[in-house]
Amino acid sequence: MREIVDKKKISQRCRNHQFSNGSSFEQLSWLVYDSMIVDLKKATGQEQKDMDDRHANME
């Protein structure tokens, strides 16, 4: 990842909101993993259609 997540700033922002226990962790995890996917997509030269074709639809 090119940018480092500043956990201190995020935790200060989260204190000002009413999140249930674990919500802050889950949101931070989503942001980190989503940014990893974007970096991997760029590094491997994949297009969104390639990823959509492999995406599992659980409905």
Rank of each mutant, 00 (worst) to 15 (best):
Q27E: 15
L28E: 14
F25R: 08
E59N: 10
H55S: 11
F19S: 04
I10H: 01
N57I: 10
N57L: 08
H55G: 03
K41P: 00
V32Y: 05
K41M: 06
S35D: 05
S24M: 09
Q18C: 11
R13D: 14
K7F: 15
S24K: 14
V32H: 07
E47D: 11
L28A: 02
S23V: 08
E26L: 08
M51F: 13
K8M: 01
D34R: 13
V5A: 02
R2W: 01
K8I: 14
E3N: 02
A56E: 10
K8T: 09
V32W: 03
Q27K: 08
Q46Y: 02
I4L: 02
Q46S: 12
V32Q: 01
K7V: 02
N16K: 14
N57K: 12
W30I: 08
K49R: 07
H55R: 03
Q46F: 03
I37D: 01
A56W: 05
W30N: 11
I10Y: 07
I10E: 01
T44G: 04
Q27M: 15
R15F: 12
K42D: 14
I4V: 07
F25D: 14
R54T: 08
D52N: 04
K41V: 02
L31R: 09
E3V: 04
R13G: 09
C14L: 12
E3A: 03
D39M: 04
V5Y: 05
S35G: 10
N21D: 13
D39S: 01
S20D: 13
D52G: 01
M1E: 03
L28T: 14
S11P: 00
H17Q: 13
A56T: 06
G22L: 13
E26T: 06
Q48P: 01
K41Y: 00
N57G: 01
K8A: 15
V32C: 02
K41C: 11
S24C: 12
N57C: 02
A56K: 02
E59K: 06
L31M: 15
R13S: 03
S35Y: 07
N57M: 06
S35T: 06
G45W: 01
E26W: 05
N16A: 15
T44Q: 12
D53E: 14
R15C: 06
M51G: 00
G22F: 10
S29F: 14
I4E: 13
D39V: 06
S23N: 09
R54W: 08
K9F: 04
K42G: 14
R15S: 11
I37T: 05
V5F: 02
V38E: 08
Y33F: 12
Q46L: 13
V38H: 03
K41R: 11
D53I: 10
D50W: 05
R15I: 10
D50A: 04
E59Y: 08
